[in-house]
Design a protein around this nucleic acid. Structure first.
Lengths: 215, 215
DNA sequence: TCTGTTATCCCCACTTTAGGGGATTGTTTG
DNA sequence: CAAACAATCCCCTAAAGTGGGGATAACAGA
């Protein structure tokens, strides 16, 4: 069973050269090659790729937007981003959108086949210069250095559910409907949340919960 | 001018085999090889390496602690972490401690020389399985610390001030006092914020504002 | 068994917000 | 200059949230 690959790139020369390159690997099969991502959901449904090579800059919807959509619709598909630019923001955005790897196009010809194989084995191929950016970024995120620093307010499971609803902007009534309990029960839970978080209004609850990542 | 490399690993066989391997590259010079990191600052001062290969698990001080020290004392030195384990926590700790790359030992023999060269060029070599962990972790980072493109809701400066107060849990009355305006003015601003953010309650405002880092 | 916790529900009085209006004073800009 | 906007303030009604109180059932541990 061969690995199905789809290519999204607005440059037809690049698409063709990638296709040619991948054909040299007998376990690979290019099942689709598209110049834009506007109809990508439909196209992906038809050609059923395991791996998608996605150019980051494309007319219409950008590759980054596309990744978000793809990851939502087809969570099992691995998306390998490719770009000629090492733009910090876009690298970071792509990764946060759910890309499985990020490589520069200059490494395309030489190592693309290796990269795709690494994807298959659950790895995330990254060009070293990209990786450097990612590492630097991670080091800059102080909150993330100590993920276990979240204080415990001893909320019960139910209280946490209610809290989650409230943080999503639901009113008491809506929370009640959502959790199949009465308005008064929601109120009761919220009162307890108030006590435990030492706050006195819903907005404070939302603010504190989001700041301290309780939800 | 050759690249000076120091090795920290408690396994002398590994140290020796790495040394042998690196000798095959004429631009590399192994200037130090140590079984622990307890005296690493002194040793580094003496042998002046450009790159350090650091085993993550070692007696006494761990490699992670060592990286922190090294990065503080010698910020120009690139540290390449090596490990046999893909332990999530240690991967992230190392990275956050300032390591420049992170590779598994199984890729040592085959690609170590390439990895070191990538370090020289300002890249961060990472084993793909490590890279996957890093990406996954980044994707989990709460959105409010992510430098993502914040959508612009065209809030006026004053509206943003009011929003900031609200997000901090203040009631209309408190916001009014804080900004030296009347309660009704606050209300008026909040109404406009509602329209611009397309929400219908204070909690939604707080939630949306924090999620999208408008404040 | 008794005590504590959790989750559920109810009531009353009170405060705060929400959703409509409308109005005035400036300032910016086509 | 007129139009557009920002910032300020006001009123009214309805809806939602707040702060007390209390109650019941289930269940876990001392």
């Amino acid at each position: 069973m061969s690995l199905h690959i789809a290519i999204f790139d607005d440059n037809s020369n690049i698409r063709d050269s990638i296709s040619l390159l991948l054909k040299t690997e007998k376990d690979f099969e290019v099942v689709g090659s598209f110049a834009h991502v506007l109809d990508c959901v439909q196209e992906i449904k038809q050609c059923k790729p395991d791996v998608i090579l996605m150019d980051i800059e494309m007319p219409g919807m950008t590759g980054i937007e596309a990744v978000k959509t793809i990851r939502k619709e087809f969570p099992h598909i691995q998306v390998l981003m490719q770009t000629v630019f090492e733009d910090d923001d876009r690298v970071f955005e792509s990764i946060c959108s759910g890309a499985s790897g990020y490589i520069l196009k200059n490494s395309l010809n030489t190592r693309l086949i290796d990269f795709i194989k690494e994807l298959q084995f659950g790895g995330s191929p990254m060009s070293p210069s990209i990786a450097r950016k990612v590492l630097t970024k991670m080091q800059q995120i102080p909150e993330h250095v100590r993920p276990e620093a979240a204080p415990d307010y001893h909320l019960t499971p139910r209280e946490k559910e209610v809290l989650a609803c409230v943080v999503n902007g639901l009113s008491y009534k809506m929370v009640a409907d959502q959790l199949f309990i009465s308005y008064e029960t929601v109120r009761s839970h919220v009162k307890h949340i108030y006590e435990k978080l030492h706050v006195a209004s819903l907005t404070e609850v939302v603010s504190k919960a989001m700041k301290e990542r309780i939800v």
